[in-house]
């Protein structure tokens, strides 16, 4: 019996955790379309994609940190919050410039954390928590806790491309595919994967860990800044309370997407699918009339079960390799 069970798990593993999530998501859409009355309407699908896009962008960047073996960044929320302020401050000088400023800010913040975690080999969780505190504190000092609204027009970022495709959704798709392709086919992307798979073995091949770590944090910072800028563009305002749920949602997306928390295996595209799945779940829960609190419980339970499942899968794998 044990043999049978192991065999089954092996086959699941071969098809990759991410494939399982894709299938699950597709199944979920099908069931929802049939059973939930207002699900399959254009406006609902549009609202769903919009709600998923920004956390999805942040999650895809975050997944690089996970893939390089540095678990998570817990400064996503605070970076998003400060990026909204940067965006709002710069908006009078033009929407694109404001967006570039938000991305630039996120990139810089990510780069510094990458240097600390990579060069000084600090614990990523503790480092990013500390950084989060610094960011929020500095933001409070700069804004006095007030909403920043300097005027300017960010309308182009809420326009629909080709009539139906919201700009944010377009950005989400472009970022996901772009980063996934870069991770899969570029030399720096491959180095990240090697470091995540086995840091010592990578060093034997002359691939040092820290440049990959710095790179992953920098790109994650850029996507987080992008998410913050686009979030701010919806209202033209910046505020420290914006983006509060981004951190948890991005982590949820990475874990549910099936990316191994210990690093190496998986693709950033899995995080995008994970974000879609979590958004879908939340959307359906709202449609069937469940409250925000219940949604939170469901999301938490989802993360736990995903972590347990990947744990079981890796133990099966570990048992075979020894």
């Amino acid at each position: 019996m044990t043999v049978m069970r192991v065999g089954l798990l092996r086959r699941v593993r071969v098809t990759e955790g991410s494939t399982a999530v894709v299938l699950l998501t597709a199944l979920f859409v099908l069931i929802a379309a049939v059973t939930v009355p207002r699900f399959a309407t254009t406006s609902n699908i549009q609202a769903l994609l919009l709600s998923v896009s920004l956390t999805g962008i942040a999650a895809v960047g975050l997944s690089l940190i996970t893939l390089v073996g540095r678990i998570f960044s817990l400064s996503i929320s605070s970076t998003v919050a400060l990026s909204t302020i940067v965006f709002a401050e710069c908006l009078p000088y033009g929407a694109w410039l404001a967006l570039a400023a938000a991305v630039g800010f996120g990139t810089f913040v990510g780069w510094i954390q990458g240097i600390i975690v990579g060069r000084f080999q600090t614990d990523p969780i503790i480092t990013t928590i500390a950084f989060s505190a610094i960011l929020i504190g500095a933001g409070e000092l700069a804004t006095g806790g007030l909403t920043i609204s300097r005027g300017g027009d960010a309308g182009i970022f809420s326009a629909n491309l080709f009539g139906i495709f919201p700009f944010q959704v377009f950005a989400f798709v472009a970022v996901s595919i772009g980063i996934a392709v870069w991770h899969r086919f570029s030399v720096p992307g491959r180095r990240m994967a090697l470091v995540g798979l086995n840091e010592k073995a990578a060093l034997v091949s002359g691939v040092r860990a820290w440049p990959s770590v710095v790179l992953s944090f920098t790109v994650a910072g850029a996507t987080t800044g992008l998410a913050g800028g686009l979030l701010s563009s919806q209202s033209g305002q910046g505020n420290l309370i914006l983006g509060g749920t981004f951190g948890f949602d991005a982590v949820t997306a990475v874990v549910v997407g099936g990316i191994a928390v210990k690093g190496g295996r998986g693709s950033p595209i899995s995080a995008a699918v994970g974000a879609l799945f979590v958004g879908l779940l939340g959307n359906v829960l709202v449609l069937v009339g469940l409250t925000y609190e219940v949604q939170l419980v469901v999301k938490g339970a989802l993360v736990l079960s995903a972590v347990v499942l990947t744990g079981v899968a890796s133990r099966v794998r570990g048992g075979r390799s020894r």
Partner: peptide
């Protein structure tokens, strides 16, 4: 080539192709 095969000799969780190309990208 390391003496510690599992620890640093190979990438256990990666296919042979990734292992072979790791130092010769």
């Amino acid at each position: 080539v390391s003496a510690d095969r599992v620890g640093e000799g190979v990438f256990l969780d990666a296919p042979v192709t990734t292992n072979i190309s790791s130092g010769a990208l």
